[in-house]
Amino acid sequence: MTRHPLVHLAHAATFALTLAVLAACGSQAQEHGNIAPAQVSIAPVVSRDIATSDEFTGRIAAVETVELRPRVGGYIERVNYEEGQEVKKGQVLFTLDARTYQAEFDRAQAELSRARSRAALAASELARAQKMADVRAISTEEFEQRRAATSQAASDVSAAEAGVAVARLNLEFTQVRAPIDGLAGRALVTTGNLASPDATVLTTLVSLNPVHVYFEGDEQTYLRHNQQARDDGRGASRDARNPVRVGLSSEQGYPHVGVLDFMDNQVDPGTGTIRARAVLDNSDRLFTPGLFARVQLIGSEPESALLIDDKAVLTDQDRKYVYVLGADKTAVRKDVTLGRMVDGLRVVESGLAAGDQVVVSGVQKIFFPGMPLDAKPQAPGLAAAVASSP
């Protein structure tokens, strides 16, 4: 069978292209020995015990939040605090016009004095009536009337004392005090405005130390954590104050440590999540209610793991790999299987060994495996801090 001339030309072109590629590869291999070493920084693989954990998003919330309202009505006479500043429990924040309540208090005291005078007179008359009754100088009916008058006078004194107590409270309530230690908001009602009792919100107060962090976890995570707690012999999160770590949006990792102190009593059937709460110390006033927070909940006992700087990881289609410094000071490619992030470093599940020197910076200068390297140790930084942390 005779082939068409075009077929012969196609085969000849393919053969020539193959020879050209092989020649280029051979030329590149010859040039590797003369190429200048790539200047890179290396860092050792960090070996550290870490615990499995899950990450959530949450919000900082005050333990106590108060909408401050007056217990009596009146016009605001003074605002006695600086808006946005911390206040102490019992500090006077607002003063209402107290003249009406002062007059009512004075009237109640006068009524109490009058009632006590009447009670003293009734007691004196009862004593005289008792002496007269002993010698039968007055009738039994008149004696009983004197006794009843004395009892009535004593009741009038008690009523007047209660009236004085109410008037005193109303007078005291004209000074609106902070019910908690905390941070005061802006004054919503200022001098000269009318405040209605138990209705007008004067300002808001939030406590600052400690603070809560609320977050929600899905049903599978909730079940897994309970199983891990049983396997490790720890109490479940509902029963034990398990540790949590928290980081703000401006921070790396989870530098703040708290404890879980509340787990809701049911999973929300609409979202499939359950709400949890952690408590954090806020002595340094770093946390403000309403801030976004990242929460890490520890799930199991610590296990040994290898960690590297995430900047060292390269991608080749669906594979992840890193370059390490070989024994002959050349770049050795190693494919790796990666895990989660821990304190800014990436967990390596397979592909590396403790002691490997991983290229962290300058990887863009490595054009092929086997390229000579001029490697210098990376300045102590995050990896060293993580390796030395407890």
Rank of each mutant, 00 (worst) to 15 (best):
V332C: 05
G74I: 01
Q130V: 14
A10D: 06
D281Y: 10
T65F: 07
P255T: 02
R245G: 04
V87M: 02
E172Y: 08
E219N: 14
L208G: 08
D316M: 03
A110P: 14
L338T: 01
N209D: 15
Y254V: 02
T150E: 12
T140E: 07
R71E: 12
R241V: 06
P302E: 01
L169Q: 14
G217C: 01
E219Q: 13
D328A: 11
V166M: 11
I76N: 03
S304N: 10
V87H: 04
Q109Y: 07
G192N: 09
D97A: 13
G182H: 02
Q102P: 06
R177D: 06
G217T: 05
T204Q: 13
V386E: 00
A162L: 14
V21T: 09
E86D: 10
T150S: 10
E161P: 06
Q266F: 15
A153T: 05
K365W: 10
T18S: 12
Y101D: 06
L17T: 08
G370T: 11
E216Y: 11
V40G: 00
T221H: 15
G381C: 01
L6I: 11
G235P: 03
D318E: 13
E83S: 12
V360M: 01
V63K: 02
D328E: 12
G163Q: 03
T203E: 05
S196Y: 10
E349M: 07
V72H: 00
V157K: 01
R99V: 14
D181P: 10
A184K: 10
L260Q: 00
Y214W: 11
F105P: 11
H32C: 15
D284R: 07
S283K: 05
P210E: 03
S207F: 13
R238L: 10
G370V: 07
K334A: 03
S53F: 09
Q39A: 14
R99W: 05
S47W: 08
E216R: 12
R147M: 15
G192P: 14
D231A: 15
G182M: 02
D316G: 04
A149G: 10
R346E: 01
A387W: 03
T100H: 13
I138K: 02
E303D: 06
R128Q: 09
Y214T: 09
A110R: 15
T2G: 07
V332P: 03
A312S: 02
F367C: 07
G73P: 03
L291D: 04
A12I: 09
T52K: 08
A98G: 08
N242E: 14
A120K: 09
A160K: 01
A165M: 11
F105C: 05
Q85T: 15
P302H: 02
I308A: 00
R294N: 02
A12Y: 13
L373F: 05
L169I: 10
Q296I: 06
A167M: 03
I35M: 06
K329Y: 12
N282W: 04
T57N: 14
N34T: 13
R224W: 09
D284C: 08
D318T: 11
G272N: 08
L286W: 07
R146P: 10
T315S: 10
T52M: 08
V358Q: 00
A122C: 01
A159H: 07
D198H: 14
R319E: 14
